[in-house]
Design a protein around this nucleic acid. Structure first.
Length: 707
DNA sequence: CAGTGAGCGAGCTTCCGCTTGACTT
């Protein structure tokens, strides 16, 4: 008697083997074992001639998918088949979510077991939980599998019908998809806002005061009874005060004269307000919050974070790192609470065990939150880890332990000071009890908020006191455009809209950079000219698909399919074949869209049209003789940098160099040849160097374009 | 005659989500 158990990850296989009877063999599927063909070389000979072969879905035959075993999974499948030969029972123990259920179903289809089959699910890897799961098996949930297939097919239909449209209208090799196109659009929308942004400036006064030898700071808030304007009072599109706001906008001169008028006048404490507040620790880490925090505090990219977390997971330091759940097991809560007691003392323990509910849209919660592994947590020092691994473990340990610590209690103090007709305000903060602050304070994307959890001590003040003003300064400010997305803030945004999954957040960013839609510079994602062109086209012709709500609506339908409230076939038919379905839309737009127009980019504040060619952006102008002239835009110049001034520089520079006839035809040949071999090289060596190939190709084009 | 180059046509590019190694950029 022997039983074959199949899980998704080899690490998990190793761990649960210890909790199962001796004659149980545990193997890993390494994720999905079958999929639609990814590229033409994956399509089997016998269907290659079919017109639906490329898309991998036979739409006319009720969207029948063409499944193949990808090249890198053939070994795994063979190993599983061999293992099954010696078994007289099969237990499918893949994750309990849509994808996991689907993996089990595909395994059944592939392995065609002749022995009894059971489906087992567990959320915690403890002996107790595994034993319970073993005695509580069920069948594969076919409805959940249908939901996964629907998701898979829909993504394929979107990606493989829209991308070719982009090849024909904009540039070969481009891509569009339910997730990436929304991500790119977010970047472009933000960049448009930044271009449309008009900065405003305002002035105010900062006072340094002392009382009983304790210094503190106060800011001007109103003069007479009129509030002084701050950044929030400006209209971003005009750089002027929002119409109707009753505020006092001070310029430099007015502020300086106010400064002179107030200098050496007596200051009086007019009002004093104290407000107690409490703060709760943040929920334990999910994939997305871990990526965000590691980016903010350790400056790691999403990919670096995941690689390091994977190492920690494989060495048994942390639980699974791809999760959307904030749930902590009982074991984890007990371990965290004992850590708190030992390291900080009983008074730092939260009175009740704290459990968090997952707020993210569309969360599937097949795993626990990310936390230190085991039933007692090793302190970071005790792990023997170093470098990145230590830092990341430390972050995870602190965040987890903090969840079981007491709330922090603080008192916010606001003081109003009067000098002549001017009112100043000073704000302070006392931490009455640090609670979880002792272990962990969440980072922030906003640098101004970074000091939030520090104490700001004000002296003891009473209404009627006269503190001494030691310094009064006039300070000029400018309003700032909305910040670009960083990797972390893009992931946060996508997750909050339910777009993408824990296993894909890191690669989404990789994809949009690789396809030439964005550059990552100083931790900011900057969209390219191509991104502007593609986003504009998609917004104009497929607005629903690039709307952030599309995925949320799809998820709702998938949920309904998994519970049996909706059928998958009518949904796909409506989406793809319906009157306004994707197929007819693409066909219709094929004629409507003028490629030349689609390759042109309108940028706010620029009269010149920017056009994109296959390998870069250029400006088209007429020379004095009426001949069209092409000026290439350097690859490292992003749409964001291209203002009227930069444009002028580009135009005059190209006027001066005018390389036109200096290249011989033979030079041109060499260049074209190297371009071809570059492209060939890229096809052989895989995608990673695609962005570099583009860069090299654009340089070639920059030379050839001027001949 | 061998090598080269122009010209032509065929074939390919692409999605999202689940998992690791195998690699040398």
């Amino acid at each position: 008697m022997s039983t074959l158990v199949i899980v998704e990850s080899p690490t998990k296989a190793r761990t649960i083997r210890n909790y199962l009877p001796r004659d149980y063999q545990v193997e890993a599927s390494m994720g999905h074992v079958r999929d639609l063909p990814q590229s033409a070389s994956d399509i089997p000979e016998n269907v290659k001639k079919e017109k639906w072969a490329k898309i991998g879905v036979n739409v006319e035959a009720d969207f029948e998918p063409l499944y193949i075993v990808p090249q890198d999974k053939k070994k795994v499948v063979k190993a599983l088949k061999d293992a099954l030969k010696g078994a007289d029972e099969l237990i499918l123990a893949t994750d309990e979510d849509r994808e996991g259920e689907s993996i089990s179903w595909h395994l059944l289809q592939l392995l065609k077991p002749k022995v009894p089959v059971k489906r087992m699910v567990f959320h915690e890897i403890t002996e107790d939980a595994i034993q319970r799961a073993l005695s509580d098996c069920r069948d594969v949930d076919v409805q959940l599998v249908h939901a996964q297939e629907t998701r898979r097919i829909l993504d394929r239909l979107v990606g493989y019908t829209l991308s070719p449209l982009l090849w024909r209208k904009i540039s070969a090799g481009l891509s569009a998809g339910r997730v990436q196109s929304v991500a790119v659009r977010l970047l472009v929308t933000r960049e448009r806002q930044r271009r449309a942004f008009r900065k405003g400036s305002y002035w105010d006064l900062k006072a340094e005061l002392t009382k009983d030898k304790t210094p503190f700071e106060a800011r001007l808030v109103s003069v007479g009874n009129t509030r002084v304007a701050t950044g929030a009072d400006f209209d971003e599109s005009t750089g002027q005060i929002i119409t109707g706001r009753q505020v006092l906008l001070l310029n430099e001169e007015e502020t300086r004269s106010l400064h002179d008028r107030l200098s050496d006048r007596p200051w009086t404490v007019a009002n004093l307000e104290e407000r107690a507040s409490t703060r709760k620790p943040s929920a334990p880490f999910t994939t997305s919050t871990l990526q965000q925090e590691a980016n903010r505090k350790l400056r790691l990219s999403a990919r670096e974070t995941m690689r390091t977390a994977q190492n920690l997971y494989e060495q048994g330091y942390i639980t699974y790192m791809r999760t959307d759940s904030t749930n902590l097991s009982q074991q984890a809560i007990v371990a965290a609470r004992s850590c708190v007691e030992q390291m900080y003392g009983k008074e730092y323990l939260s009175p009740q065990p704290r459990q968090y509910t997952t707020k993210a849209k569309g969360a599937q919660e097949a795993h626990e939150a990310i936390r230190p592994a085991g039933s007692s947590f090793r302190t970071p020092q005790a792990t023997g880890l170093s470098g990145r691994e230590l830092s990341l473990y430390d972050l995870i340990w602190k965040r987890t332990v903090a969840t079981q610590m007491a709330e922090a209690r603080q008192t916010n103090v606001t003081v109003q000071l009067q000098v002549e007709d001017a009112t100043f305000r000073a704000a302070g903060k006392r931490i009455d009890f640090p609670g979880f602050f002792r272990a962990y304070v969440e980072g922030s994307d906003d640098p101004n908020a970074a000091i939030e959890n520090q104490e700001v001590i004000l002296p003891r003040l009473q209404v009627g006191d006269h503190p001494e003003c030691t310094e009064l300064d006039a300070i000029g400010h400018e309003t700032q455009p909305p910040a670009r997305y960083s990797e972390a803030s893009l992931v946060k945004m996508l997750e909050s809209e339910g777009i993408g999954r824990p296993s894909t957040y890191a690669s989404i960013i990789g994809t949009i950079i690789d396809r030439g839609y964005a550059q990552l510079i100083n931790n900011s994602l900057i969209p390219t000219f191509t991104a502007f062109a593609v986003t504009t086209l998609l917004e104009k012709h497929f607005p629903d698909l690039v709307d952030t709500s599309f995925t949320a609506r799809m998820e709702q339908t998938l949920d309904d399919i998994s519970t049996g409230e909706a059928d998958w076939l009518p949904y796909l038919k409506e989406f793809y074949l319906g009157e306004t379905g994707l197929e007819s839309q693409v066909e219709e737009r094929e004629d409507q869209i003028d490629g030349r127009e689609a390759r042109a980019i309108d940028l706010e504040g620029l009269d010149t049209k920017i056009r994109i060619s296959k390998y870069g952006a250029y400006i088209e102008q007429e020379t004095e003789e009426g001949e069209p002239r092409i000026i290439n835009i350097p690859q490292d110049l992003s749409p964001a940098d291209l203002d009227a001034e930069k444009l002028e520089v580009l135009l005059t520079r190209s006027e001066q160099t005018r390389p036109a006839s200096r290249h011989k035809r033979s030079d041109l040949r060499v260049l074209q040849w190297s371009l071809r071999s570059l492209r060939a090289a890229w096809r052989c060596h895989g995608r990673q160097s695609q962005a570099e190939t583009r860069l090299a190709a654009s340089r070639c084009d920059a030379l050839t374009g001027n001949v």
